[in-house]
Design a protein around this nucleic acid. Structure first.
Lengths: 197, 197
DNA sequence: CAGCTGACAGATATTGAAATCTGTCAGCTG
DNA sequence: CAGCTGACAGATTTCAATATCTGTCAGCTG
């Protein structure tokens, strides 16, 4: 199988790894498979990624960063903070749900990584909480929200909506009533953030 | 091994099963083991429980019901609804955390059952949501809470606090900062329930 | 005869040998 | 000589044979 004869770059390896993961799933996706897909020896892959875990983590990071990137657009949007918050949470839920449905194998890899406590997932969560903090901060400045500690509030909102973005709930996202449950939780949280009166 | 020579009852089987589960864990706890612990043949166990899954579910149900029973005392307590709500959520968190720590094997069984989608876990959740509904209903009647649909609000509160009672988060319950996170989420939810002004 | 036993068939789990994979590195190649 | 290869040791996974378990039931027993 003659591969693209360009030089072997980390990016090309990540591309191929994502494809192999998508095809074979996390359990049955070896470094040898990735090398074979690229038409190189597996030793060459180890030149760019120290371990298999590092490779898997890099793939997941890239994948998670795409979600973060999409969401950051909402943070910067020109809307009332409350609407930005609602949009952001809805977009997060939609993105996770779509990924779980469309790329089940990659999603499974993500779940493996969550268990492994790799830094990529932790950083992704920190990133999302930072985005949320900005929205809440904007709401406080606009006088709409009453949070004394926007960062803590952001963390609370993120954790309270876990049922709608945490992979461990993925199975339940397609059940009927989920939309209503999501709306109820978001309404309750938004109400809690609002300045009294 | 001469067993207690009383007649074999469902209760005695449950007792023995719980002990076997505690000792061996859910993966390595067979019906044969349970029968051996009771000094009877495994056929006798099947006289009381149609399948192994039914036995496991009955054990878990008994175990879950103990928690529900403790919490129901708080629902009926003579306190302001908001305090009852806070106490109830704190007690739920404390109970789950204690069980995860003290009876890890039984807790693992509970998690297996959650995956299996048995009715026991569903009923337990329904039970807890009903208790929450009563507290919120009391808060609405006292004019403290503004919920238009106490049942939906109860469900939202329950789901929003999932991080602090859902078994899939058990590992994180002992990490530093968890208490503060819990307090932040509860504060936000209580604030959201309060009557405006 | 109500309740229990133990043998049985089919399903599931365990085990150990063989195959594959991970990660390293000396040496080849362009 | 920078980058790649491929052989290698030890770790992990696969696979098939074996053992154990689940669920049933005819018959034993008190």
């Amino acid at each position: 199988m003659p591969p693209t004869s360009e030089t072997l770059t980390a990016e090309r390896i990540l591309e191929a790894t994502e494809e192999v993961l998508r095809r074979h799933g996390p359990a049955k996706a070896t470094v040898v498979d990735v090398a074979r897909a690229l038409g190189v020896s597996h030793g060459s892959v180890y030149r760019h990624f120290r371990t298999k875990a590092a490779l898997r983590e890099a793939v997941t990071k890239r994948w998670l960063d795409r979600t973060s990137g999409q969401l950051s657009g909402i943070v910067a949007a020109d809307r009332v903070p409350e609407d930005r918050l609602r949009d952001w949470l809805a977009a997060l839920f939609a993105a996770k749900r779509r990924k779980a449905g469309e790329d089940p194998e990659l999603f499974a890899t993500y779940m493996v990584l969550t268990d492994e406590n790799g830094t990529a997932v932790g950083e992704h969560i920190t990133d999302l909480e930072t985005q949320l903090t900005r929205i809440i901060q904007a709401g406080v400045e606009a006088g709409d929200f009453a949070a004394t500690d926007p960062e803590a509030s952001a963390r609370a909102v993120f954790q309270a909506t876990g049922r709608f973005h945490d992979p461990c709930y993925a199975r339940e996202w397609e059940e009927p009533g989920t939309e209503a449950d999501f709306a109820a939780v978001v309404d309750l949280l938004v109400q809690g953030l609002r300045r009294a009166q």
